[in-house]
Design a protein around this nucleic acid. Sequence first.
DNA 1: TGTACATCAGTGAACGCGCGTTCACTGATGTAC
DNA 2: TGTACATCAGTGAACGCGCGTTCACTGATGTAC
Lengths: 209, 209
Amino acid sequence: MVEKRRRKRGETRGQLMEAALTLVGKGRHFASLGIREVTREAGVVPTSFYRHFRNMDDLGLQLVDELGLVMRKLMRESRQQAPFADKLIQDSVNLFVDHVLNNRNFFTFMAQGLAGESRAVRDGISGEMRFMAHEMMLDFRRMKMAEHLSDSDLYRVCELVIRTVAFSLNDILGTSADDEHQLNTIREREIQHVKMIMLGAMAWKSEDR
Amino acid sequence: MVEKRRRKRGETRGQLMEAALTLVGKGRHFASLGIREVTREAGVVPTSFYRHFRNMDDLGLQLVDELGLVMRKLMRESRQQAPFADKLIQDSVNLFVDHVLNNRNFFTFMAQGLAGESRAVRDGISGEMRFMAHEMMLDFRRMKMAEHLSDSDLYRVCELVIRTVAFSLNDILGTSADDEHQLNTIREREIQHVKMIMLGAMAWKSEDR
DNA sequence: TGTACATCAGTGAACGCGCGTTCACTGATGTAC
DNA sequence: TGTACATCAGTGAACGCGCGTTCACTGATGTAC
């Protein structure tokens, strides 16, 4: 009890955000969550909510910020992979799928938010994806790959890859975590998708280069 | 008044579905709609709802069915295009964008439903997309295009195209209908995306063929 | 280091309101002869 | 074609409940001297 009291200072905010993610992970849609519901899940009194957020939209926005951190972690890990081009695609896709499974609630929130109610949340997630595409582009440049492409064309390629893989979020999240068979099907499909895009990128001719 | 009375028979069901779509089109998320809200928008008494649907999920499911019709209409129109390969991609993408703008509410519902609360709605929409990919594959075969690809590889290509274009739903719907500049940016981007995928498809080597 | 005070974060009671759902009703439409 | 009856679809009143939000409170934490 004393312990609980002591830990409280400034911690409720995080508990509320986590509670919202938990509910989302349980199948609820963020847009249908209520303040009382979230505070109940977090184990605090409803009024506490207002100490940290103006309303549910506000909480959603702050979740998007945290989403950025999860994404950056994902990218950092992916850069530590051995850069052998032939396995690069497989490894990256597998890493992504694993990351999604390890952060189920977060990515469910992201998938929901893309077509969600709040303009600000939508824009936040879109921005996050643009950032990832941009980072991916820089990685290509660093590795001296796809040098026949102009900046804008290379960006388009990266954008396409990110979007393609992001779309599979819906499939990954619709699969129970222990259905290895179906997960492998998804992995292989996404690997093939990305390979095809890269083949297209190799064959693409930029106009001004 | 008499007119109104006379039209009622069996029409309320449609009005309720349209009311839900209208609210979705106004920026609300389907998951957060209530029965009273929908009946209010439709101009009927709350109890009427139960004459046609068990609950909001049920209404969502029936909307998915109608979504199928919209999709089929889209495909029928696209087949009437002159089949000149060089303009085929542009025409198809433009047709899709126009169709989305002309059925804003429907496609907003579809975009929301992909990551929505109801498993059944999600599966329904996924099924619809798989159907479209399959149809697209048959069209390729009919036109004797991409004959170097096995059935399963060609399906993957079509699936990738459909998903890519479907992803852009979020961008199209986030644009006000008269912002021609941004819409054109989206059109051009999607055309380039699809062209790249087709380039990749051309370069792809199927194992068993 | 100790004391006095301000700020912060969680509490519990209370409010009015809109929600989903039930029920018995009514009048229009469809069906059988 | 006309009549009698069943079914269907929309109505209006009523219910209990959970919601968002406000308020004054309390005790813990941080700050100044």
